[in-house]
Design a protein around this nucleic acid. Structure first.
Length: 823
RNA sequence: GCGGGCGUGGUGGAAUCGGUAGACACGCCGGCUUUAGGUGCCGGUGGCGCAAGCCAUGGGGGUUCAAGUCCCUCCGCCCGCACCA
């Protein structure tokens, strides 16, 4: 019998894929015709080699969501593209000489081939790679729009230099002082670079997190990264140089406790201040050492405090005291003003420094619980040793009064500081979007006119960066004329961070065929925002923050409808696939390739299994035997469908249902309800698939009985319909065998309430909270009737006899708990 | 150090609002069919116990008629941030 209806995915899957490709089943028009829309988007892949198991998982999730939304009656945009610029292809080119375009396009070809083999319901007419000139033309256009509005600018600054990749990196790409990709300790270099003014959007990026449905931990990470602090800027004056040194502090209430003043080693005035003092040589040496030390070591919080006195003082504006100045590497140039007022009594770091250097410590806040308690004290309490009008006032009340006083005296003002820095986008590398700027000795940095876009990446001999962009070697390309004055000029040779490409690709999908513009705002307005975005949590700050910034900036510039303020209305982050509790990696030799699974079991098994292992937002362990279980399940579904289709042609549901029919229909409607809620309220694909398995088990159990052909057929068709989002080929095949219809053209089933209600239910009987018996009870039974059933139970009596019944708790539809006390 | 998540059978996991712990699957044990089988089907499977029953959701305590779920405390693992003034 088994041989008669052998499940052969190698035959079934290509056959249905051909139908979908030939008919353009998953293509969607921008003319929505009044239907509700759903934009379901999985983060675009970086094409390198071939897809790995993580790709299989994330696209299985995305495709399930897309199918579910489609059959719920929405027009679904489910596109695909490639994040094609980037370092791995370029490093490969340095090693082999193969052009990054060739290796990248080979990888894209392989990705596309496998995605089609997986049967993903992609609208392939919208496909693109970010490395195509017809695409990066618009990346350059966006850059120029930002440039023209002052949101892209060039400045010389201390930047992160990755000595292995030989390029600068954005702050977001430096993890624990090391380059994100290379793992090399990052050096500080003073270089002129291009930045995007993301800090202008800090407040909106923070506040508008409230408007989107994202995992709370991702929002928290963005909030921390933006790092908003409220406080005050206070000006300290140095009399010798007649220079003002503003500081940012969140604790202006502790101003009276400032006993010294510290500058960061990078502060531009450090050497000037020390000049001519007896400390000059020592300061010079300290600064040199601090600037060359690597960032990771400097950032260690447990490191002992070091520093050198400058031999100068500043005046504390609130009390006129002269505070000694120091330079110390625990003060960071990147945050605030690169200078701090030190209040050792109420700040742990200042306290450690004061201890190490024997500096004065003055308490200005009492600990209400322990007025003579240990220092440093970072809590709240009444001010002491401050000014007569503030002593005794609680510090949190005094704080605004002190700020107001500073403002009146012109010595400071309320201020807000962010940890977020502007986004450094220049890269001294080859394989990226060229920055469309011409440097003219007379006119400065000039935008390449729009009609000359794209500035096409020139071919070069040597991809190896040598402290400057490889593009600099393309001399004919570099030499050009100034678009403004026509004089001799040179092209910018740096390329853009690849995160620029992925900051707008989701807009392009909406209007992918547009040759006249990056997109038509009206069309983008029909699709945006992305209703469900799906991807890895590793992009929690980088990509997801940049894309939000781009969306807001482009809306401000009038290129997006005003109501499009957030790119991704809902976000789902999927967990990793592990093997034996470990990450899969070539080094460990524990890699399972999607290709091998698909070849062996078919795409349906691979996709359904990966969603069945566990909740998709959690990490999951791959099991070679587990995948066979899924294959058996799909084979059983196919076989039962094929048998039923052959044996029982076209039977409708009978008018009179027998007990087995009733049982099948109840289970079917239960499963419809369960799968629907698992998919719409949560992303619980594992329990949804389990429900379909239960449904199929019910058919096997009941089949030998007296179930009518129509009921069996309906049940199997329901199972095929419900499993379709996870295993589309075998579901289409089975459904077609049973009904002659195409399952994706059928609306998502809805449960019939008549079959969800039952005349009786299993009443659980407890004595003192322990289950002692289960009996059938009428669904509409009253509390008294349920209690009567409990009392009538022999098993209950056995445990209550000889005891006093204290009370009887009734949970309607569930249980009765008889509470007794030994008498 | 701060913030967040997690801990359930041999394994992955389920238990959605405080109400039947272990759905579904893997694995394992037994049986049947067929044997060319990596097939199919049936039954069993948290632990202890002959049984009645008792015990059991990382440990300990608490609230409650009732706790995997709530509270306190401790332990372990994972993730993020970390000299941010």
């Amino acid at each position: 019998m088994a041989a008669e209806h052998r499940y052969d995915p190698a035959e079934i899957e290509p056959r249905w894929q051909r139908v979908w490709a030939e008919e353009g089943t998953w293509e969607v028009s921008n003319d929505l015709g009044g239907d509700p829309k759903s934009y379901v988007l999985v983060m675009l892949p970086y094409p390198s080699g071939e897809p790995h198991i993580g790709h299989l998982k994330v696209y299985a999730v995305g495709d399930a969501v897309a199918h579910f939304h489609r059959r719920a009656g929405r027009r679904v945009l489910n596109p695909m593209g490639y994040d094609a610029f980037g370092l791995p292809a370029e490093n490969h080119a340095i090693k082999t000489g193969q052009h990054p375009r060739d290796s990248t396009e080979a990888a894209i070809e392989e990705f596309r081939r496998q995605f089609r083999e997986w049967g993903l319901s992609i609208d392939w007419t919208r496909e693109f790679g970010t490395h195509e000139p017809r695409i990066y033309r618009w990346t350059q256009w966006i850059f120029l729009e930002l440039f023209r509005r002052g949101l892209a600018y060039q400045k010389e600054a201390a930047v992160n230099w990755d000595p292995v990749e030989e390029t600068v990196l954005a702050n977001e790409q430096v993890i624990d002082g090391r380059g994100e990709r290379s793992g090399a300790l990052v050096e500080v270099r003073q270089l002129k670079q291009w930045f995007f003014r993301i800090t202008d959007y800090a407040d909106r990026l923070l506040a508008e997190l409230q408007t989107i449905r994202w995992p709370e931990h991702v929002k928290t990470m963005q909030r921390n990264w933006i790092g908003r602090s409220e406080g005050a800027e206070v000006v300290f004056h140095n009399e010798e140089l007649r220079a003002d040194y503003p500081v940012f502090t969140t604790r202006p209430d502790t101003l009276f406790g400032a006993t010294f003043f510290v500058l960061a080693p990078e502060h531009p005035d450090v050497l000037r201040l020390a000049e001519g003092t007896s400390h000059e040589a020592e300061v010079r040496e300290y600064v040199n050492r601090a600037l060359t030390a690597d960032k990771a070591l400097r950032g260690d919080i447990d490191k002992e405090k070091t520093g050198v006195a400058l031999g100068r003082t500043v005046v504390n504006p609130v009390n006129g005291e002269h505070l000694p100045m120091y330079v110390a590497d625990y003060v960071l140039m990147e945050y605030g003003t690169g200078a701090i007022m030190a209040v050792p009594a109420h700040d742990e770091r200042d306290f450690a420094f004061a201890e190490a250097f024997g500096l004065k410590i003055r308490r200005v806040i009492d600990d209400p619980g322990d007025p003579e308690g240990e220092l440093p004290y970072t809590g709240n309490g009444p001010l002491v040793n401050s000014a007569p009008e503030f002593d005794g006032v609680h510090n949190r009340e005094a704080l605004p009064a002190i700020v107001a006083w500073l403002e009146r005296e012109g010595k400071g003002h309320a201020s807000i500081n962010y940890r977020l820095r502007d986004w450094l986008i220049s890269r001294q590398r080859y394989w990226g979007t060229p920055i469309p700027i011409v440097h003219c000795p007379r006119c400065g940095a000039v935008a390449v006119p729009d009609d000359e876009l794209p500035v096409v990446l020139p071919d070069v001999e040597d991809y190896k960066p040598r402290g400057r962009s490889p593009l600099a070697a393309a001399e004919d390309w570099v030499r050009t004329s100034c678009p403004q004055c026509g004089g001799a000029a040179e092209r910018e040779t740096d390329t853009m961070d690849t995160f620029v490409d992925s900051s707008w690709y989701f807009l392009r999908y909406c209007d992918a065929a547009n040759d006249e513009a990056a997109w038509d705002p009206a069309i983008v307005g029909r699709w945006m925002p992305v209703d469900q975005y799906i991807g890895g949590v590793e992009h929690a700050i980088l990509h997801l923050l940049y894309a939000r910034f781009f969306t807001k900036a482009l809306a401000d510039l009038g290129h997006l409808p005003e109501e499009v303020q957030e790119p991704f209305a809902a976000l789902f982050t999927q967990g990793m696939i592990l093997r034996d509790g470990d990450k899969m990696s070539k080094n460990k030799g524990n890699v399972v390739s999607p290709q091998s699974i698909v070849e062996r079991y078919g795409a349906d098994t691979a996709r359904a299994y990966i969603l069945f292992i566990g909740p998709p937002d959690q990490d999951a362990d791959w099991s070679d035997t587990g995948v066979e279980g899924m294959h058996r399940f799909l084979a059983r579904l196919y076989r039962l469908a094929a048998e039923a289709a052959g044996e029982l042609p076209g039977d409708p549901l009978p008018d009179e249902l027998n007990a087995d029919d009733e049982r099948l229909l109840r289970k079917a409607h239960w499963a419809i309800e369960k799968v629907t809620s698992d998919m719409s309220e949560r992303f619980n694909f594992n329990t949804a698939i389990a429900a379909v398995m239960e449904l199929l088990n019910e058919v096997t159990t009941v089949k030998r009985g007296a179930a009518s052909a129509g009921a069996v057929r309906f049940t199997l068709a329901s199972a095929a319909s419900l499993i379709f989002p996870f295993a589309p080929h075998v579901a289409s095949e089975s459904y077609h065998l049973l009904t002659g219809d195409r399952v994706w053209e059928r609306p998502w089933p809805s449960p019939d309430p008549r079959y969800l209600e039952t005349a009786t239910f299993e009443l659980v009987l407890q004595v003192n909270g322990k289950v002692r018996d289960r009996v059938q009870a009428p669904s509409d039974a009253s509390r008294d009737e349920l209690i009567a059933l409990a009392r009538a139970s022999e098993r209950v009596q056995q445990f209550t006899d000889g005891s006093e019944v204290v009370k009887e708790v009734v949970v309607p539809g569930k249980l009765v708990n008889v509470v007794v006390r030994a008498s």
